[in-house]
């Protein structure tokens, strides 16, 4: 690691600034005047449109708009939704727990499926179990999220009637109902990540199993199980941990369509709708918060990387 922890934390700020500039520029590039969208069926009245522009600072230059927004964010004000006038911070507070719950459940499912199948695949390399594990992993990876979601709703909810087809009950209201409404989307999300975790666990395990220190451990007559768990898996987990935190970011992308299909009122659904409605403060706010979480998770991954990898610790 070329930077200390302090250096890494200091990097967060420029990254976030870059994210905000990126989002601002992309928005500016997108066709579709937000004032016209907001004017809805009144868009025919140029006075209405001009008034909306003025009120939202859309008649100012881009740098002025940007600085205005950044200034507010610096004071902890993320602005308000152009569409519903709800404060963006309130929207974030309402939706973050939903997606977080979905994400954690998906990740647990992914680890439960991905890591054991990856280990089995590596240890029983080229045997039938390797193929079975591979098949499980690849099948999950090869299915479009939204397609799997729709098929699950049709099968599990409509035909079998086991689980509610959609909607969301917060954990705080009713734990079992909450789990019932989130288990299918979490499975859909986790399933795809499981495959990625499995593949990386397998390939990392394969390479560590061939490393000298593992060979040495084997040669010393340590039991195969011990070697796998103590030496190989530990080192194989390094890329898995890094990847896992990275995949948490991907999760949000996956959540975009999955939340749409299951009508889960989370971050993903909110941001897609906001893009299509040109509700820029919501897009900016959500992307910024996501980016912040993502960067923090990355930092965590780097720290874990050093903690687990003794070679790097020495360096």
């Amino acid at each position: 690691m070329r930077f200390g922890l302090g250096g890494r934390i200091a990097q967060i700020v420029p990254t976030l600034i870059l994210v905000s500039v990126l989002v601002f520029c992309l928005q500016q590039l997108m066709p579709g005047d937000p004032a016209l969208v907001l004017a809805g069926e009144e868009r025919g009245d140029p006075r209405v449109v001009a008034q909306i522009r003025a009120e939202l600072w859309l008649d100012r230059s881009l740098p002025v708009q940007y600085l205005h927004w950044v200034g507010n964010v610096a004071q902890g004000n993320l602005g308000y939704s152009w569409r519903t006038r709800q404060p963006v911070s309130q929207l974030v507070a309402q939706k973050l727990p939903v997606t977080a719950q979905l994400g954690v459940m998906a990740f647990v499912i992914a680890v439960l499926i991905g890591v054991p199948t990856g280990v089995v695949a590596a240890v029983k390399r080229n045997g039938p179990w390797d193929y079975v594990a591979n098949a499980i992993g690849l099948a999950g990876l090869s299915m479009p999220n939204f397609w799997l979601g729709i098929m699950l709703i049709l099968l599990v909810s409509v035909h079998l009637g086991w689980l509610p087809p959609s909607g969301y009950v917060p954990l705080s209201e009713d734990v079992s109902q909450s789990l019932a409404t989130t288990i299918m989307p979490a499975f859909v999300l986790g399933n795809a990540i499981a495959a990625i975790l499995m593949r990386h666990t397998r390939s990392a395990m394969l390479s560590t199993l061939d490393q000298d220190y593992v060979r040495t451990a084997r040669a010393k007559g340590l039991s195969e199980m011990w070697v796998i768990l103590r030496h190989a898996l530990r080192n194989a987990l390094i890329p898995v941990v890094t990847l896992g935190t990275l995949e948490l970011g991907t999760l949000l992308s996956g959540a975009v369509l999955t939340e749409q299909v299951f009508s889960i009122p989370g971050f993903g659904k909110m941001v897609v709708d906001a893009v299509f409605n040109r509700d820029y403060p919501v897009v900016q706010g959500v992307v910024l918060v996501t980016a912040f979480l993502f960067v923090v998770l990355n930092l965590l991954a780097d720290i874990l990387y050093v903690l687990i990898n003794p070679r790097l610790r020495r360096a």
Binding site: P14, V19, L29, S253, V271, V287, A291, F294, V295, N298
Partner: peptide, 20 residues
């Protein structure tokens, strides 16, 4: 930092915005 920034934005949102 640039990669961090791009990876920090959800993939599909980037793709949607770019396609739009």
């Amino acid at each position: 930092r640039l990669v961090d920034a791009m990876l920090a934005c959800p993939f599909l949102i980037l793709a949607i915005a770019l396609t739009a």
